[in-house]
Amino acid sequence: MDNFTQIFKEKKLKLTPQRIAVYKYLMSTKEHPSAETIYNALQEEYPTMSLATVYKALKVLVEVGLIQEINVGEGTFRYDGNIAPHPHVHCINCLRVDDIEGISFSFLNDEVKNHTNYNILTNQVYFYGLCQCCNNAK
Protein backbone atom coordinates (compact mmCIF):
# COMPACT_ATOMS: atom_id res chain seq x y z
CA MET A 1 0.00 0.00 0.00
CA ASP A 2 3.00 2.29 0.53
CA ASN A 3 3.92 1.94 -3.16
CA PHE A 4 0.33 2.82 -4.07
CA THR A 5 0.42 6.02 -2.00
CA GLN A 6 3.86 6.95 -3.30
CA ILE A 7 2.82 6.57 -6.95
CA PHE A 8 -0.20 8.81 -6.43
CA LYS A 9 1.98 11.45 -4.72
CA GLU A 10 4.58 11.34 -7.52
CA LYS A 11 1.90 11.67 -10.20
CA LYS A 12 0.13 14.42 -8.20
CA LEU A 13 -3.13 12.48 -8.26
CA LYS A 14 -5.82 12.61 -5.64
CA LEU A 15 -5.96 9.53 -3.44
CA THR A 16 -9.70 9.01 -3.05
CA PRO A 17 -11.44 6.35 -0.92
CA GLN A 18 -13.01 4.97 -4.11
CA ARG A 19 -9.65 4.52 -5.85
CA ILE A 20 -8.27 2.85 -2.74
CA ALA A 21 -11.31 0.54 -2.54
CA VAL A 22 -11.05 -0.51 -6.19
CA TYR A 23 -7.32 -1.15 -5.85
CA LYS A 24 -7.71 -3.13 -2.62
CA TYR A 25 -10.46 -5.22 -4.19
CA LEU A 26 -8.27 -6.12 -7.16
CA MET A 27 -5.33 -6.93 -4.91
CA SER A 28 -7.54 -9.23 -2.82
CA THR A 29 -8.61 -11.51 -5.67
CA LYS A 30 -7.01 -13.77 -8.27
CA GLU A 31 -10.12 -13.42 -10.41
CA HIS A 32 -10.21 -10.98 -13.29
CA PRO A 33 -13.36 -8.96 -12.67
CA SER A 34 -15.07 -6.51 -14.98
CA ALA A 35 -15.85 -2.97 -13.83
CA GLU A 36 -19.44 -4.06 -13.21
CA THR A 37 -18.32 -6.94 -11.00
CA ILE A 38 -16.11 -4.60 -8.97
CA TYR A 39 -18.95 -2.08 -8.70
CA ASN A 40 -21.36 -4.76 -7.42
CA ALA A 41 -18.80 -6.09 -4.93
CA LEU A 42 -18.18 -2.63 -3.46
CA GLN A 43 -21.80 -1.44 -3.40
CA GLU A 44 -22.54 -2.51 0.17
CA GLU A 45 -19.50 -0.71 1.61
CA TYR A 46 -19.68 2.27 -0.81
CA PRO A 47 -23.40 2.72 -1.60
CA THR A 48 -22.92 6.19 -3.11
CA MET A 49 -20.15 5.11 -5.48
CA SER A 50 -21.35 5.04 -9.09
CA LEU A 51 -20.32 2.68 -11.87
CA ALA A 52 -18.80 5.71 -13.63
CA THR A 53 -16.57 6.29 -10.58
CA VAL A 54 -15.39 2.67 -10.74
CA TYR A 55 -14.55 3.08 -14.44
CA LYS A 56 -12.65 6.31 -13.72
CA ALA A 57 -10.73 4.72 -10.85
CA LEU A 58 -9.80 1.74 -13.06
CA LYS A 59 -8.63 4.07 -15.84
CA VAL A 60 -6.34 5.94 -13.45
CA LEU A 61 -4.98 2.73 -11.89
CA VAL A 62 -4.17 1.33 -15.35
CA GLU A 63 -2.54 4.60 -16.45
CA VAL A 64 -0.20 4.69 -13.43
CA GLY A 65 0.67 1.00 -13.87
CA LEU A 66 -0.82 -0.36 -10.64
CA ILE A 67 -3.20 -2.77 -12.39
CA GLN A 68 -3.54 -4.16 -15.88
CA GLU A 69 -6.47 -4.13 -18.24
CA ILE A 70 -7.06 -7.34 -20.16
CA ASN A 71 -9.27 -7.99 -23.15
CA VAL A 72 -10.10 -11.62 -23.81
CA GLY A 73 -12.54 -10.75 -26.58
CA GLU A 74 -15.83 -10.52 -24.70
CA GLY A 75 -16.54 -6.94 -25.70
CA THR A 76 -15.66 -5.76 -22.19
CA PHE A 77 -12.43 -5.32 -20.29
CA ARG A 78 -11.35 -7.27 -17.24
CA TYR A 79 -8.85 -6.08 -14.65
CA ASP A 80 -5.91 -7.79 -12.98
CA GLY A 81 -4.06 -6.70 -9.85
CA ASN A 82 -1.05 -8.76 -10.93
CA ILE A 83 0.98 -6.40 -13.11
CA ALA A 84 3.87 -8.79 -13.74
CA PRO A 85 3.86 -9.98 -17.36
CA HIS A 86 1.96 -13.27 -17.51
CA PRO A 87 -0.42 -15.07 -19.89
CA HIS A 88 -4.11 -15.72 -19.26
CA VAL A 89 -6.43 -18.59 -20.12
CA HIS A 90 -10.12 -17.95 -20.84
CA CYS A 91 -12.92 -20.52 -20.66
CA ILE A 92 -15.15 -19.99 -23.68
CA ASN A 93 -18.10 -21.58 -21.88
CA CYS A 94 -18.31 -20.04 -18.38
CA LEU A 95 -16.10 -17.02 -19.26
CA ARG A 96 -13.71 -17.64 -16.37
CA VAL A 97 -10.25 -16.07 -16.76
CA ASP A 98 -7.21 -17.43 -14.94
CA ASP A 99 -3.55 -16.52 -14.74
CA ILE A 100 -1.09 -19.03 -16.16
CA GLU A 101 1.78 -19.22 -13.71
CA GLY A 102 5.27 -20.49 -14.38
CA ILE A 103 5.33 -19.63 -18.10
CA SER A 104 6.84 -16.43 -19.44
CA PHE A 105 6.54 -15.11 -22.96
CA SER A 106 8.82 -12.11 -22.44
CA PHE A 107 11.33 -13.65 -24.86
CA LEU A 108 8.75 -13.04 -27.60
CA ASN A 109 9.36 -9.30 -27.37
CA ASP A 110 12.92 -9.72 -28.66
CA GLU A 111 11.86 -12.36 -31.17
CA VAL A 112 9.18 -10.09 -32.67
CA LYS A 113 11.58 -7.14 -32.63
CA ASN A 114 14.05 -9.22 -34.67
CA HIS A 115 11.37 -9.94 -37.31
CA THR A 116 9.83 -6.46 -37.57
CA ASN A 117 10.88 -2.84 -37.44
CA TYR A 118 8.95 -2.33 -34.18
CA ASN A 119 10.37 -1.51 -30.77
CA ILE A 120 8.29 -3.97 -28.74
CA LEU A 121 7.26 -2.59 -25.35
CA THR A 122 5.08 -5.39 -24.00
CA ASN A 123 2.83 -8.27 -24.99
CA GLN A 124 -0.33 -9.96 -23.79
CA VAL A 125 -0.88 -13.64 -24.46
CA TYR A 126 -4.30 -15.30 -24.17
CA PHE A 127 -5.31 -18.93 -24.50
CA TYR A 128 -8.89 -20.08 -25.02
CA GLY A 129 -10.43 -23.40 -24.06
CA LEU A 130 -12.68 -25.11 -21.54
CA CYS A 131 -11.96 -25.03 -17.81
CA GLN A 132 -12.01 -28.31 -15.91
CA CYS A 133 -15.59 -27.80 -14.64
CA CYS A 134 -16.97 -27.05 -18.11
CA ASN A 135 -14.94 -29.83 -19.70
CA ASN A 136 -16.25 -32.36 -17.15
CA ALA A 137 -19.84 -31.19 -17.73
CA LYS A 138 -19.67 -31.92 -21.48
Rank of each mutant, 00 (worst) to 15 (best):
M1W: 11
M1I: 13
M1A: 13
N3P: 07
F4A: 00
T5P: 03
Q6V: 09
I7F: 05
I7P: 00
F8V: 04
E10T: 12
E10P: 04
K11Q: 13
K12A: 14
K12R: 14
K14A: 15
L15C: 10
L15E: 13
P17S: 04
P17V: 03
Q18S: 13
R19S: 07
A21W: 00
A21P: 01
K24I: 05
Y25L: 07
Y25G: 03
Y25N: 05
L26D: 00
M27R: 12
S28H: 04
S28T: 05
S28K: 06
T29R: 00
A35R: 02
A35G: 10
E36T: 14
T37S: 09
I38S: 00
N40Y: 09
N40I: 08
Q43F: 11
E45Q: 10
P47T: 01
P47W: 04
T48M: 11
M49C: 04
L51I: 10
T53M: 10
V54G: 02
V54F: 06
Y55T: 04
K56L: 09
K56Y: 06
A57D: 06
A57C: 13
A57K: 00
L58C: 07
L58R: 00
L58N: 05
E63P: 06
E63C: 09
V64Q: 03
G65Q: 07
I67M: 05
I67E: 03
I67W: 04
E69Y: 03
I70N: 06
N71W: 06
G73D: 05
G73Y: 07
E74F: 08
E74S: 11
E74Y: 08
E74I: 07
E74C: 07
G75C: 07
T76D: 11
Y79H: 05
D80H: 05
D80L: 05
G81F: 00
N82T: 14
A84W: 12
P85D: 10
P87H: 06
P87G: 04
V89A: 09
H90F: 11
H90I: 00
C91M: 13
C94N: 11
L95R: 14
R96E: 12
R96P: 05
D98L: 13
D98F: 11
D99R: 15
I100G: 01
E101D: 15
E101H: 13
E101W: 14
G102R: 09
G102W: 10
F105V: 09
S106D: 15
L108K: 06
L108E: 08
N109V: 10
N109M: 13
V112I: 15
V112M: 11
K113T: 15
H115Q: 15
T116A: 08
N117W: 14
N117T: 15
N117Y: 15
Y118K: 11
Y118V: 08
Y118E: 10
N123V: 09
Y126P: 02
F127P: 04
G129N: 09
Q132E: 14
C133L: 15
C134F: 08
N135F: 15
N135H: 14
N135W: 12
N136E: 13
K138A: 14
K138P: 10
K138G: 14
